[in-house]
Design a binder for these strands. Sequence first.
DNA 1: TCTTGAACCTCTAGTTACTAGAGACGTTAG
DNA 2: CTAACGTCTCTAGTAACTAGAGGTTCAAGA
Lengths: 138, 138
Amino acid sequence: MFSIGALSDRTGVKIPTIRYYEEMGLMPEPERTAGNQRRYTQAGLDRLGFIKHARDLGFTIEAIRALIDLNDRPDHSCATANAIATAQLDDVRAKIARLQRLETELVRIATHCDGKGRASDCYVLTSLADHGLCETAH
Amino acid sequence: MFSIGALSDRTGVKIPTIRYYEEMGLMPEPERTAGNQRRYTQAGLDRLGFIKHARDLGFTIEAIRALIDLNDRPDHSCATANAIATAQLDDVRAKIARLQRLETELVRIATHCDGKGRASDCYVLTSLADHGLCETAH
DNA sequence: TCTTGAACCTCTAGTTACTAGAGACGTTAG
DNA sequence: CTAACGTCTCTAGTAACTAGAGGTTCAAGA
């Protein structure tokens, strides 16, 4: 049996976050000691690892809840799991594309300004004031 | 003079968001009509455009506040503006790098699962449960 | 067995950048 | 003048935690 602190140490998930996951229904309510402290089994540790990994990959709590439900019903089709993962991949790719456009603009803005001039001539400030100077949409 | 709705239409910033920017000190408190409605000048419109553009580029409210302060003091050095823009660029690049690592993992996870099997054999679920299958750190 | 200090408990509130809604009042075109 | 739409303030909600207060329990050493 593991205390909440032991779970935290093993997974790198902070203690309040573990309690938060419990409240959100991602972690099952564990047994308690006579003094009301949480005691987890190996299954609890495994589940927290699953959640941590999914969060690191950017899945939302909602998506993780759905994945856990599937995990708990082994005879169910995995079509939903595949759909969730694919949606997450699409989302990540969209974010990358957007950030790359921002990167282009920021490079343009930052390289025109060496930080030595005065604010009135600053290209950073001019550029923010005038969207027409931008090369890409954002 | 522009009403808040006119500002919203011209910039694409929603009305409650404009009021929120005012509360955060990014937008100056505009004049009011006898009936207490906000009336903006061209300067107000320009400032909202500046804020919108900066937000679109991912600058935080905090950073925008600093940029606006600089914009209002034209004889000040633009070193701070340059530092803020460069920090934002670094941040964007770090996010891209991280998302690209996630993309790699998600492709691996999603392509191993065609969505037709059962949950017990689902690679999406197996993979989330076992971080050791991952190729990159995240 | 007692003590002490670390770990744990619940609860509330704060974070970022908004968004939604209620209920009341202002403005403007016909 | 009135209808319809715009605007006002205020509160509360969103995601995914994080911080802190004030109190209780556990485990190890004397």
